[in-house]
């Protein structure tokens, strides 16, 4: 069992195989992981590659950059990318900082213990409460006849719709997306904050550091990788989200995933090549975010094992 080499040459030198399965090593080495690789290649990697390749071909399979150029030249598409990036970026950033603040409050704020566990449980639920039901909840709350809308209008004399509020604005969608973004940050960052040792703070204090210096020199650098990683995850999370936005306005809302949805459904124009290009653009953006993260991590964290 100590020999993990992939070659079957080593097998022959073994005096007595411990059991029948290892006597015929080569296939059994791979048999356990085979379903995984077959599955992911067929249903994750190949379909994605198919789209990527398609993005560079015209209808007859010739190499072209026209599809990708169309992403930039068609103002409705480039605009959709822009809106999507804005929404995802801000909902990730705001969600990340709000989630971090909440996490610090419940872990380090000296609040009663039940608040911490209740918040963690709730965050687990809310981070998975997305899609259509989330939209329904916000329509019931802040929709035109929503409870809070009515309350603000009748009690505080504030007509938020007259003030320009709308779920279909960037700000409106961000407010809604925060409902799963904040808890997702909490769920991921709380263990990282727990990993900060109390003694680090005490050591820093005896060495004469102020609380601010300790945060700048130790806490932030230590939390930064998990934090940044989660920001990227939050970004990807809202960048691909459709259902919530779709429930607010159907295909009318101009964000990338809805654009692609319409392409696939054939609601608008049916041009698979353009669809490939849109999909490719989405992968590139979330992919770039991750590449940035990986680059940053390897650069800034030689101290990580």
């Amino acid at each position: 069992m100590t020999d993990l080499s992939l070659s079957n040459r080593t097998i022959a030198t073994k005096p007595a195989p411990p059991n029948a399965a290892t006597a015929f090593r080569f296939p059994t080495q791979w048999i356990g992981v085979a379903p995984f690789f077959i599955f992911t290649i067929m249903f994750l990697i190949l379909p994605t590659l198919y789209l990527v390749v398609g993005a560079f071909q015209d209808g007859d399979g010739h190499l072209t950059l026209d599809n990708l150029l169309q992403l930039v030249s068609d103002p409705s598409i480039s605009n959709a990318y822009w809106v999507s990036i804005k929404i995802s970026f801000w909902s990730a950033i705001i969600g990340a900082f709000a989630g971090l603040a909440l996490a610090i409050a419940i872990v380090r704020g000296g609040l009663p213990n039940w608040i911490r566990s209740a918040t963690l449980t709730f965050s687990g639920v809310a981070s998975n409460f997305a899609g259509l039901p989330l939209a329904f909840a916000f329509i019931a709350t802040l929709g035109r006849v929503g409870i809070v809308t009515a309350l603000l209008r009748d009690v505080f004399n504030l007509n938020i719709y007259a003030m320009g509020f709308n779920f279909l604005t960037t700000a409106g969608l961000i407010v809604v997306y925060l409902f799963f973004q904040i808890p997702l940050m909490v769920v991921i960052i709380v263990p990282a904050i727990d990993g900060l040792k109390k003694e680090w703070g005490e050591a820093a204090a005896t060495l004469g550091a102020t609380q601010a210096q300790y945060w700048r020199m130790v806490v932030i650098p230590v939390l930064w990788p998990s934090f940044l990683g989660t920001v990227i995850l939050l970004f990807a999370n809202s960048f691909g989200a459709i259902a919530t936005a779709y429930a607010f306005a159907g295909p009318a809302l101009n964000i990338v995933p809805i654009k692609l949805y319409s392409q696939i459904n054939g609601d608008v124009l049916h041009n698979p090549q353009l669809g490939y290009a849109i999909a490719f653009g989405m992968i590139v953006i979330t992919g770039l975010a991750n590449v940035f993260y990986i680059w940053f991590r390897t650069r800034s964290e030689r101290w990580l094992k």
């Binding site: 994605t48 990807a236 691909g240 696939i264 999909a279 979330t286």
Partner: peptide, 19 residues
């Protein structure tokens, strides 16, 4: 590989299936 589905949006994956 297991982290890819967090990066590749569901709509892209299903689009790949359809094609």
């Amino acid at each position: 590989i297991t982290l890819l589905p967090l990066v590749i949006p569901a709509i892209v994956i299903v689009f790949g299936y359809i094609r």
